[in-house]
Design a protein around this nucleic acid. Sequence first.
DNA 1: TCAAACTTTGACGTTAACGGTAAATTCGGT
DNA 2: ACCGAATTTACCGTTAACGTCAAAGTTTGA
Lengths: 152, 152
Amino acid sequence: MEGNGKTRYMQIGEVAQRTGLTQRTIRYYEERGLLRPPTRMEGGFRLYSEEDVQRLEQIKQLTQLLGFSLNEIRQILDAAEVKSQLRADWDKIDPSERRKRLLHAIEASESQIRLIDHKIEQLGQLRARWAERLERYRALLLELDQVESAAT
Amino acid sequence: MEGNGKTRYMQIGEVAQRTGLTQRTIRYYEERGLLRPPTRMEGGFRLYSEEDVQRLEQIKQLTQLLGFSLNEIRQILDAAEVKSQLRADWDKIDPSERRKRLLHAIEASESQIRLIDHKIEQLGQLRARWAERLERYRALLLELDQVESAAT
DNA sequence: TCAAACTTTGACGTTAACGGTAAATTCGGT
DNA sequence: ACCGAATTTACCGTTAACGTCAAAGTTTGA
């Protein structure tokens, strides 16, 4: 499984291109143990395999799933305050202005919901992958138990 | 709505107690614009309202939703590699060891899935709150339009 | 064999999100 | 008026997750 003649090796530049990560980030991931230290050329240049690229793409997905910095949270909550903005001088403004504010509030809410849905979807995909794995393990376990019980 | 006689004011210490955040963190959130600068006593002590506490709890929820540091991602991926670990010397080990490894892999997968489910649930709650808001706005808009069309 | 392009390590810089501490005020009770 | 507890601002420290830059070494193609 390791000595596959078909394996193409890439240098860090190409990997960076393909993954959209910087070379620094790739090395950093290796440093932090997220990526297994790749093989090297004689002179020390790193050589990455397709597997490595896939792994990097997984890492990327997961970091994006991270989301929500304090800044983003502020934006979310600020959008929530469109509510009080709406209510503010509600009685003192004319209907067309009211309409405008309402539309704005609706826009903001919809945008937030879309953002949340996106994150939920990503998490759902992640969950599906794990569930699939889990099923495979369970099947294996069953198989094992059957063999054993048949032997006794 | 502002000059409510019933409003109880708390100092930062009590708020910290109630929210489980540190005073430092609370001030930091104010500094970063996440929390509106509270009213002050004559001498400058901050006075918080119930609303402020609620807001802080929202912020807390959202920051927890953040999850996934690189360390956690590594754990996730490492758990994923239980897969290759499993496969490693599969043929050279005896059935009881196989069973043990399988059980371990299953445990790990289940744990990951629970974690993901928890995050999904939190996001779901957040989504529900936004959806509710959105509905209210839409209802208001309808109301507004009806009034207007009746007037013309 | 030589230059241009690429890569390596190392070191320092930066931003976010706080933690901790100190020195000075302020508050609440007596 | 006074004391102890709580709070204020200010500033320095820290960790994570990279960015940036420099000096030196490596590859490759002509």
